[in-house]
Amino acid sequence: MNAPVKNPVRLRVAVHKFSSCDGCQLALLNLGEDLLTLAGRIDLVHFAEAGPLDPDTDVDVAFVEGSVSTPEDLERIQHIRQHSRLLIAIGACATAGGIQALRNGAKGAEWVAQIYSHPEAIASLERSTPISSHVKVDFELWGCPVSGPQMLAVVNSLLLGVAPRDNADKVCTECKRQGYSCVMVTRGVPCMGPVTRASCGALCPSLGRDCYGCYGPAENANTDALAAQFASQGLTPQAIVRRFQSINSQAPVFLAAADKTRMSGHE
C-alpha cells in the first residue's frame, strides 16, 4: 500500500458486499461489545448489513467483500473505487474470486440452465473474479473468512497512519509457534499448511486436522514439493488438484499448481 491516511480526524469507512457468503463482514458484526468501541473511533458511512446506507459519499477506506460476478458488479466496483481513498479487499472472494470461482473452468451457461427454469433472467458473468482484476486494490486481507483481529489490526494501523502489515508467512510457522504436533509428519495427513498464508493461528492443526488452504497461498509457496509430498502419501492426481482447487482456486499459485498436476498426472 502506498497512500496511508495521515492522521485523519475520523476515519470514514464503508463496507461493501459483492458475491459472497457475508462471512467476512461478520468479522465486524461478531466483535461483540468491541463493535461499539470501534464505532466510537470510526465513522461507518456505508455498511448495508449493519444499517448505514450511503454508497455514494467519499470515504477514506472501503472494505470490499465478495467477488465480481455480475454485469452490475462491474460498474459498482468502479464507482466504489472512485469514491474511496483506500480500497481494501477482504476475504478469499475478494482476493481470489472465492469458492464460487470454481465455476470459472466450467460452462456457466449450462449450469444456469440446469438449475434455473428461466436462465435468461439470470445475469451472471462467466467467471467470478477478484476485485484486483477490475480496479486498483491498495491492500488485500486474505482468509475465508478474515478474522476480527485481522480487521481490527488493519483499522488500527490506518488510524495511526501507517500501512497495515501483510503476513504472507506460512501456516506451518504459526503451527510451530503454537507447539501443535504436525499432522502431516506424525499422522500422514496431507496438509496444505506448507503453502498456505498465515494469520488464522493454525486453527485446523489445533484440532488435529489438515489445513485446507482457506487463507490462500503464502509467499514463496513451494507447491511442487507439496504436490510431490501429497503424491507420496497416496493422493491421486485428481485429489491433489482438488486440494489446490477449493476455496482459493483462482489464486494464481494454486491455479498453476493444479494445472501442473493435471498435466503431469494425466488426470
Binding site: 464460487q100 470454481l102 456457466g108
Partner: peptide, 14 residues
C-alpha cells in the same frame, strides 16, 4: 438478485 454461486454444481465430483 443473488448472483448465483452454483454450489450444487461445483460440489459434483468432490
Amino acid at each position: 438478485f443473488e448472483p448465483p454461486r452454483y454450489f450444487e454444481k461445483f460440489l459434483e465430483g468432490r
